[in-house]
């Protein structure tokens, strides 16, 4: 009697609080039509002409097959749970992120700024003033005026070429990018050292260094430095998560990173360079014999389960019609 009482309790037990918010994860389908699962692949069909003996045999086969399928599905599930890939690139972040793109657009924009941090509008104003002054100081002779004008025009062209961002050094570009990153990430005006700003500046640094690594494959030192910067960014963002999770998730979205990239371990290994195609589609890690066997096995398992799924769908349609 007591046993029956406890058994009754075990079914459909609800939370003590928060009962209204509960929603079942899988939509409940009426009993006549069960949800489609892989186990339908094991279904053995019988008709009126099958003998008793045959039916028994088929039932036994179905049971056996179902067991096998359950085991295989679980093995693959466990394998996938253990080997989860990074959701985004742990170094460069999501490629859809606009953070770096916006900064590069600003640097290249000649109407906004020239190199060495010179403002374009100020530049135009100053040159106009200089031209006017030199004309006013000269005599009122028309030919002299024209010659001075042409000289000033040449000067302006020369300065524009010198100050064009295409002709400036990489260091100058990096400095401008840092400035813009600080402006983009700061909480209030004059903020230069909050975790968000540090993470933003590190991201720009990593971007420029990674461009270098892509070009020069043999430069190991820079690659190591990039790894250090990535770790630095990880640690400062971990700290930010502790003090203010809201700001943390905002920064992640801004820089195109994700939570798992910050929490999980990262090494600038050859495996990483191969996986994220830093140097194109090139094999860098040699597959060992044992790994090859293992990978082939996993692939074969995956193919088998796919075939089970197809078969299950066919059987399901035979039993209950199309969904």
């Amino acid at each position: 009697m007591l046993k029956l009482h406890t058994r009754l309790l075990s079914n459909g037990r609800r939370l003590l609080n928060n009962t209204t918010n509960l929603k079942p994860a899988i939509p409940v389908i009426s009993e006549s039509q069960p949800p489609l699962t892989t186990y339908f692949a094991a279904k053995q069909f019988t008709d009126n002409y099958t003998t008793k003996q045959k039916a028994k045999k088929l039932r036994r086969r179905e049971k056996k097959l179902k067991k096998k399928i359950t085991k295989e599905v679980n093995i693959l599930k466990q394998y996938d749970l253990k080997n989860v890939p990074f959701s985004v690139d742990p170094v460069l972040g999501n490629s859809n992120c606009k953070f770096i793109e916006n900064i590069l657009n600003k640097i290249d924009n000649q109407e906004m700024n020239l190199s060495y941090g010179i403002d374009r509008i100020e530049f135009e104003k100053v040159l106009y003033g200089a031209e006017k002054l030199s004309i006013d100081q000269s005599s009122s002779n028309e030919t002299m005026r024209d010659s001075i004008k042409t000289i000033e025009e040449h000067k302006k062209k020369a300065i524009e070429i010198i100050l064009n961002s295409r002709n400036t050094s990489a260091e100058d570009k990096r400095k401008l990018a840092t400035k813009y990153a600080v402006e983009e990430m700061q909480i209030n005006e004059g903020d230069t050292a909050s975790p968000e700003v540090v993470a933003g500046v590190l991201t720009t640094k990593i971007y420029f260094m990674m461009q270098h690594v892509k070009k020069f494959k043999k430069d190991v030192t820079t690659r190591v430095k990039v790894e250090q910067l990535v770790h630095q960014r990880q640690s400062i963002l971990k700290y930010l998560k502790k003090i203010s999770p809201e700001r943390y998730y905002y920064t992640l979205a801004k820089l195109g990173l994700s939570d798992d990239v910050i929490i999980r371990e990262f090494a600038m290994s050859k495996q990483y360079l191969q996986d994220f195609k830093v140097w194109g589609d090139k094999q860098l890690v040699k597959e060992t014999k044992s790994m090859k066997v293992k990978n082939e096995k996993v692939q074969a398992l995956r193919d088998r389960i796919d075939s089970y799924n197809d078969l299950a769908k066919q059987n399901y349609e035979l039993l209950y019609g199309k969904k």
Binding site: L15, L16, N17, P245, E246, Y249, A253, K254
Partner: peptide, 22 residues
Amino acid sequence: AEFKQNKGQQFAQYEDLAKSRI
């Protein structure tokens, strides 16, 4: 039986909020 602190659920909320803000 009961939630003492629903930090994990808050984090998921913050993630959605950040996307719209950006």
